[in-house]
Simulated scan of single mutants.
Amino acid sequence: MEDILRPIYQERASQANTLSILSIEKKLHEITITDTFDTVLLVIVKELETPYFIKNYTYDNKKAALHIVREDQLKEWMLLGSNRKIVEWITQGKILFDRNEYMTGLKNELRDFPFYERKIKIGLEFAKLVRRYMEGKAFFENGQHLDAYNYVVHALHHLARLAVIENGFHPEITVWNQVRQIEPEIFKLYEELLTSEESLEKRLELLFIASEFLIHSRTSFGAAHLLEVMEDHDEWTINELLNHPDLEHYNVDLSILLEFLIEKNFVQVINVTTKGPGIFHRHYRVLKKLS
């Protein structure tokens, strides 16, 4: 493979803009890791007109893909978990080129999982968990059991990913293999949802009861990042929170997370008078300090 594809990656390696190049080979039972391609070449660059660029090739009745990604895009994927293959590509990939040991440092960073980055990932995952759980419960209470089932499966995935991060690991694509070892209680919930002979309504009812406990017990941990940011000021508007640089990745999940924290007495609503009689601005204050 390397001999045939060498001209492709050597051209990139000769450019001062290139930070590192990895080769990822397709594995027999994990073909989706490379999107069914026999080889993926991952090129990380400082600058690129678009954040992400792909070229596909054919050689010897095989397929290869060249993925060129800008460094800031790569960092965003790693933080948000929005491209779940990227962690496995970095950890499993073979280094073909590495300027100033860039990739070596990145692999070490993934292995060590810095505390600050972990705290942000926990907050983002917890916010998604709360949204999926609350929306799923609303569907269930309205008798829309199939929609509730879909949302609760997603909620369990976020709960599983949260448990993996809590234990100091990056969630992989095969997250349930990780959770089976790390948090068997969560794995058991997922298994029962899928395999139980109870009616769907009964399965969901039991799952919401169990999930409520698991989510509640993780609230201080899951919301720590948001609450620590909020402790910097006495009061916040929703717009101030949405535009805070440390909270920008929460996006649409921030509002529902705030409402959840109000319900759990972690955040207090402060009503501020407006010009309209009987209408108040809704401000937010941390009620339960973490320290």
Score class of each variant (00 low, 15 high):
39 T>Y: 06
122 I>Y: 05
106 L>W: 01
217 S>G: 07
40 V>N: 12
274 T>Q: 07
144 Q>H: 04
156 L>E: 02
201 E>K: 10
47 E>N: 09
3 D>I: 09
106 L>N: 01
50 T>S: 13
48 L>G: 05
60 D>N: 13
13 A>E: 11
33 I>C: 06
42 L>N: 03
250 Y>T: 01
183 E>R: 15
72 D>I: 14
114 P>N: 13
234 D>V: 12
24 I>H: 07
175 V>T: 04
146 L>P: 00
93 G>H: 01
43 V>G: 05
98 D>I: 09
214 L>S: 03
142 N>E: 10
12 R>I: 00
223 A>L: 02
147 D>Q: 14
223 A>P: 01
216 H>D: 13
83 N>Y: 09
171 P>S: 05
58 T>A: 07
203 R>D: 09
205 E>N: 12
138 A>Q: 07
163 A>I: 02
128 K>G: 05
54 I>F: 11
132 R>D: 11
38 D>E: 08
134 M>L: 11
265 N>P: 00
234 D>Q: 14
58 T>L: 10
152 V>I: 15
83 N>R: 08
110 L>P: 03
69 V>S: 15
194 L>H: 00
100 N>H: 09
204 L>Q: 08
52 Y>T: 03
177 N>S: 07
140 F>I: 07
162 L>D: 02
187 F>D: 12
207 L>E: 14
80 L>A: 04
111 R>E: 08
236 W>E: 13
232 D>V: 11
89 W>D: 09
218 R>C: 14
181 Q>Y: 09
277 P>E: 10
213 F>R: 14
114 P>C: 11
26 K>N: 00
37 F>Y: 15
223 A>N: 02
73 Q>Y: 10
199 S>C: 02
22 L>A: 06
156 L>A: 02
20 S>M: 13
150 N>T: 11
250 Y>M: 04
269 V>I: 15
8 I>H: 05
71 E>Q: 15
267 V>K: 06
278 G>E: 05
61 N>T: 08
15 Q>I: 15
236 W>V: 14
78 M>C: 03
273 T>Y: 07
150 N>V: 11
124 L>M: 08
71 E>L: 15
97 F>Q: 09
210 A>W: 00
58 T>H: 04
169 F>R: 07
177 N>W: 01
38 D>A: 01
74 L>E: 05
48 L>F: 00
13 A>R: 03
18 T>W: 11
30 E>Y: 11
121 K>W: 04
37 F>T: 02
65 A>C: 15
24 I>W: 07
251 N>A: 15
75 K>W: 06
41 L>I: 15
155 A>E: 06
154 H>M: 09
24 I>N: 12
131 R>L: 07
193 L>W: 04
74 L>S: 04
129 L>W: 10
244 H>V: 05
